[in-house]
Computed example of a mutant assay.
Amino acid sequence: MAISEITPRQARERQRQGALLVDIREPHERASGQAEGALAVGQAELEAAHARHLPSQVATIVLICQSGRRSAATAAALQAAGYADVHSVAGGTTAWMAEALPVVRPHLEPDEADFLERYSRHLRLAEVGVEGQRRLERSSVLLVGAGGLGSPVAFYLAAAGIGHLRLVDDDVVDRSNLQRQILHVESTIGAPKVDSARERLAALNPRVRIEAVRARVTSANVEALLDGVDVVVDGSDNFPLRYLLNDACVKLGRPLVYGAVQRFEGQASVFDAGRHRGRCPCYRCLFPEPPPPQFAPSCAEAGVLGVLPGIVGLLQANEAIKLLLGIGQTLAGRLLQFDALAMRFREVRLAADPDCPVCAPGRPFPGYIDYARFCATGG
C-alpha cells in the first residue's frame, strides 16, 4: 500500500480533528523548534515500541520529521505493523515552518541550547551524533605552529568543538605572514602568534579552551607539551622539530598528523607508530635522514603559494577529527601529495621500517638527540 503524504496544513487540520501528530526526529533536531502539539518520539524508539506510544491501530497517526523522508519510511513500517490510517508530512518540519504554522521550542539550559545549535550539522551525522560531539569536547589536541598550516588547522578544530587546544609557537606576527597565516590580522603585527591566535579562536568558539604557549619546542619540554593530549598536529616549517615531534610521539604513543608545504606542492600523512608498532610507519621510516639543507629551503627562502597551506592544513584538521572520533580511514601508512599547479593529488603507500631506530617493534627508545645538528649535517 502506498504511503499517504499530506501537506503541513493538512496535517495541522487533521491534528485539530484528533489525529496524533508525532515528531520522530532526535532531541537535538527538535531543539530548533517542533510542530505545536506534536508528541516527541525518536524514529528508532517508535518503530521498536510503537504500541507503547501510539493509541489503537485504527487511530489516525501523522508522522513528521525534518524533510519527510524518515517519516515516510516509518509510516511504511507502521502500516506493516497493522496501523491502518498513517500519514507522512511532505517536506517535514522544514515545510511546516516555511508555512508559518505554530512551532514550540523545548526549554533548554543555555549551555545545552548552545551545544545543540552550534553543532547541529555534526549532530545529524550518524558517524558523529551527540556522543561523538561530546567526545570531541572531551578531547585535547597539541598544535605546534600558529602559522600557515596551523591557521586552518586551528580554525577548523576550534569550529568543530575540540575541548582543549594547546597551541605552541614562539614567533611574533609579521606582515609577510598575512598572505597565508589567516589566524592573524594587520592589527596583530608584532604580537605573539599564540596570543593573536587565541583571540581569533575564542571569538569563533568560546566553548573551546585555548591554551596559548609561547615557547620553542625542545627535547626538554616536548613531553610536558604532549602530556594529556590525544592527537598531535605538526604545523611547523622545521625539519629538526619534525624529527623531535615524531620521536616523542612514538615514545608516548600519540598519533602525529603531519603536513608540509613548499612553493606549489604539499603533503600530508598520519604517523601512528607509537600505538601500532610494526604496522604503521613513523616519520623516520619515510625520511631516515633529513635532506641536505640546500635541498630543503624553508618557505621564507623558497616562497609558497598563499592558499597551499590552507589546503594542506584542512587535510590535517580532517585527519585529526577522524582520529579523535575513531571514524573513517586515516592517512596512516599513506603519504598524500598535492600539486597545486596541476591540481592533482597523488598517494604513496608507506611501510613501517623493521629497522627503524625509533619505532621498530621491541626496540627501546634511543633518547632524544641534537636535532638541529642532525638536520644541519644531513643525518
Score class of each variant (00 low, 15 high):
Met1Leu: 07
Val257Ser: 13
Gln179Ile: 04
Glu109Ser: 11
Asp23Arg: 00
Leu225Glu: 04
Leu123Pro: 04
Asn238Gly: 12
Ala203Tyr: 02
Pro27Tyr: 03
Pro102Arg: 00
Thr94Met: 14
Leu136Phe: 11
Gly278Leu: 08
Glu47Gln: 06
Gln10Thr: 12
Arg118Lys: 06
Pro55Leu: 02
Val261Arg: 03
Pro361Asp: 14
Phe338Cys: 10
Leu54Glu: 13
Leu183Ile: 07
Phe155Thr: 14
Ala95Tyr: 03
Phe374Leu: 05
Val304Ala: 09
Gly303Arg: 00
Ser4Val: 05
Val233Leu: 12
Gln66Lys: 02
Ile3Cys: 11
Ala126Trp: 01
Val312Gln: 09
Gly266Val: 06
Ser196Lys: 00
Glu347Val: 14
Ile162Val: 15
Arg363Lys: 15
Gly132Met: 04
Gly33Gln: 10
Ala268His: 07
Arg209Pro: 15
Arg166Cys: 01
Leu305Gln: 08
Ala372His: 13
Pro152Lys: 00
Ala11Arg: 00
Arg242Ser: 14
Ala317Met: 08
Asp171Arg: 00
Phe287Gln: 09
Leu136Asp: 04
Gln337Asp: 00
Arg198Lys: 15
Val128Asp: 01
Ala300Lys: 00
Ser139Leu: 07
Gly145Cys: 11
Gly42Ser: 10
Thr330Lys: 02
Ala19Glu: 14
Ile210Arg: 07
Val58Trp: 02
Ala160Met: 09
Val348Thr: 14
Gly150His: 02
Ser196Thr: 02
Val173Ala: 01
Ala300Asp: 15
Phe338Asp: 11
Ser56Gln: 11
Ala154Asn: 05
His122Gln: 13
Arg16Gln: 14
Phe264Gly: 11
Gln34Cys: 10
Arg275Ser: 01
Phe345Gln: 04
Tyr258Arg: 05
Ile189Thr: 05
Tyr243Gln: 03
Ile3His: 06
Ser67His: 13
Gly68Phe: 06
Gly150Arg: 01
Leu136His: 09
Ala59Ile: 00
Tyr371Pro: 12
His28Ser: 10
Lys193Asp: 05
Val229Asn: 12
Phe155Cys: 11
Ala273Phe: 12
Leu142Ser: 12
Gln79Phe: 01
Glu109Pro: 07
Leu241Ser: 15
Val213Tyr: 06
Ala224Pro: 11
Gln181Gly: 12
His50Asn: 07
Arg363Met: 14
Pro102Phe: 02
Val270Thr: 04
Gly148Ala: 14
Arg121His: 08
Val213Arg: 14
Arg25Phe: 09
Pro192Phe: 05
Ser88His: 05
Arg9Phe: 08
Gly37Ser: 11
